[in-house]
Structures are given as C-alpha cells and as structure tokens.
Design a protein around this nucleic acid. Structure first.
Length: 204
DNA sequence: ATAATGATTCGCT
DNA sequence: GCGAATCATTATG
C-alpha cells in the first residue's frame, strides 16, 4: 500500500479549519513493536487557541503540557484524558501558533488483527477504532509520542492514498465534551465523513 | 505539599 | 441514563 507522506507545508498553514477537513480521508499510520497499523481518518475536531475556550492553550495558556501545541506544525500532541485515554492530536500552524486537531475516529486499514489484540475485544465492532480513546489504544499511542514529528515514516505519520472526498460528504457538527466552553462549544468544528460508520457517534 | 479535574469509555440498570 | 475507572496535569497553599 503506497501513500504519499503529507509534507510540512500541509501542516504549517495558519488556518486549522481547512486542515482539519482535509485530514478526513487521509491515512494515519503508526509503527510500533514491529507492527504497522493504520486507518482512514473519519472524524476530527479542530482546536484554535488562543481564542478557543475549549482548547488547552486557551488565552495563550503555556504549561508543560501545552508547550507541545506551540511547536511548529507537523507533530503529534498526546495527552492523557481521565487518567486512562491517550489522545492523539495533530499540531498545525507555525511555531507559537497553538492550533491542534484531535483524531476522534478512524476506519481500520493495515494491522487490524493487531489492533483487535491491543483493544482486548471479544467481539469486534465499529468501536474498535471509533472514539479518541479507542483510536489511541488501537494505534498504541503512548505519552512519549508527545511532540514527535509526523514528517518521517518512523513512528507516527499521515499519508495520502488518493481518497478524495467531495465537500458535501463532510459533516460539520458541535465538538464533544466541551460544554464548559460557552459560545465556543457551539462552533461546528467537529468534522466527519457522512455515512461512514467508523465515527464515535452517528449524530451530534 | 495536597486536591481537583478532564477534548472518555464501558458496563450495568 | 448513570457511575466507576485511573492518573498526569494543573492550580493553589
């Protein structure tokens, strides 16, 4: 399966919203413990600091954790959620621009058997790689992946394998789990491939 | 130093 | 629909 590695210039554009939509249909790949696992990105959420109250980097917030978001585009931002889930984000924009895109769901491609093993699932369903916590577990995202470059095919990277999505096939809805973010919670910055069952929730 | 909490998921009711 | 799991990060003293 040959794909074209997404280049630095894909990630370093300033506006995170088109980048998030263009990630739909691209292939996220990880290489861990001699296993290559991958999937078509089917659902993402954009986070646009400093103005976005839902972002960890809201209002130029700089802490040890958020520092990764201020790096140049084309890196992974990984954080632990609820003490359990490793969430995989794509850092975008130039250095000191704290934009990021959360990968919420993928459609399994390579290494599906290994992904099932990592998930400890008895019965395989769409929950294998749907939902950001499940994506992290299936792709074996680890805390030490925080800050790694996506620009080489070593650990984590994103490829274009020629999938083209027409504008009308992209669903735009409210982001999940950020009700505290007031008016920013209303932004339709969750993007997903319509009619694709590999998303964390059919509606929202 | 301590305490609160979360860009979630799963199992049970 | 509800609550537990589980811990790095964060704010606060």
């Amino acid at each position: 399966m040959e794909g074209r590695l997404l280049s630095r210039s894909f990630y370093t554009r300033f506006d995170v919203l088109p980048i998030a939509q263009e990630l739909l249909g691209k292939i996220i790949v990880t290489h861990k413990d001699d296993f290559q696992t991958s999937g078509v990105i089917t659902e993402v959420e954009a986070y646009q600091a400093p103005e976005d109250k839902a972002s960890h980097a809201y209002n130029h917030r700089r802490t040890g954790r958020t520092e990764t978001m201020y790096l140049d585009g084309g890196r992974a931002y990984v954080y632990l959620c609820y003490g359990i889930h490793r969430m995989l984000n794509v850092v975008t924009g130039g250095k000191d621009v704290a934009h990021a895109i959360l990968i919420r769901s993928v459609e399994p491609l390579d290494g599906m058997k290994e992904m099932v093993r990592r998930r400890n699932l008895k019965n395989v369903g769409f929950n294998l790689t749907s939902g950001p916590g499940n994506v992290g577990k299936a792709l074996r995202i680890a805390m030490n992946d925080d800050g790694v470059s996506l620009l080489t095919q070593q650990t984590i990277w994103i490829e274009d394998r020629g999938i083209h999505l027409p504008e009308e096939s992209i669903g735009k809805m409210r982001r999940i789990g950020i009700d505290y973010a007031e008016e920013w919670a209303e932004k339709k910055w969750r993007f997903l491939i319509k009619e694709n069952p590999w998303v964390s929730r059919p509606n929202g």
